[in-house]
Design a protein around this nucleic acid. Structure first.
Length: 153
DNA sequence: GCCAACGTTGGC
DNA sequence: GCCAACGTTGGC
């Protein structure tokens, strides 16, 4: 089993939105970055654990936990002209973008903020803490996941 | 709102 | 294939 961190802007889609979805699941649509796509398409498996990270908000940080409940399939929003994730260069016969579905697991009592994460020595190699990192999906180690989960409880 | 860091685009 | 210009991300 693998561990991941997925960023989302809570104004657009928050962990509360995930919790309130039918069956508490949702497709993770709209990823338009090849590296992040490759993680979803090739490496994310059912049952993998996911830290849900809220970005572009106060405070930024990990808000809770989800898990992968459906493995990759084409992101059909790419050819939905009404979607804000529409990509004119995409051909449904040859999908370019993929997504997985995630299921809500739990909300932290309070968000484990970015500044708190930065204070933990054992987390210093996390990609999310690197300056200028913009990748919206990053792998995390089991240890990192467990430390953050404990911080949130 | 600012701006540094990054990914993508497109001319050459 | 290089790289400048551009658009986006995201913390502050």
């Amino acid at each position: 089993m693998k561990y991941w961190l997925m960023k989302t802007e809570p104004d657009v889609f928050s962990i509360d939105d995930l919790k309130n979805h039918p069956q508490k699941t949702s497709p993770w649509e709209g990823v338009r970055n090849y590296q992040a796509r490759n993680f979803m398409r090739d490496e994310m498996k059912k049952g993998d654990k996911v830290l849900i990270y809220h970005s572009n908000c106060k405070p930024p940080g990990v808000a809770g936990i989800a898990e992968v409940c459906k493995e990759s399939y084409p992101d059909h929003f790419a050819w939905d002209k009404k979607s804000k994730y529409y990509d004119a260069k995409c051909d449904p016969q040859n999908p370019r973008w993929f997504m997985v579905d995630v299921k809500f697991k739990k909300m932290f009592k309070s968000t484990v903020s970015l500044s708190e994460l930065k204070e933990v020595k054992a987390l210093e190699s996390m990609l999310i803490l690197r300056k200028g990192n913009r990748l919206s999906i990053t792998p995390v180690t089991k240890k990192e996941f467990e430390i953050i989960e404990k911080m949130g409880d």
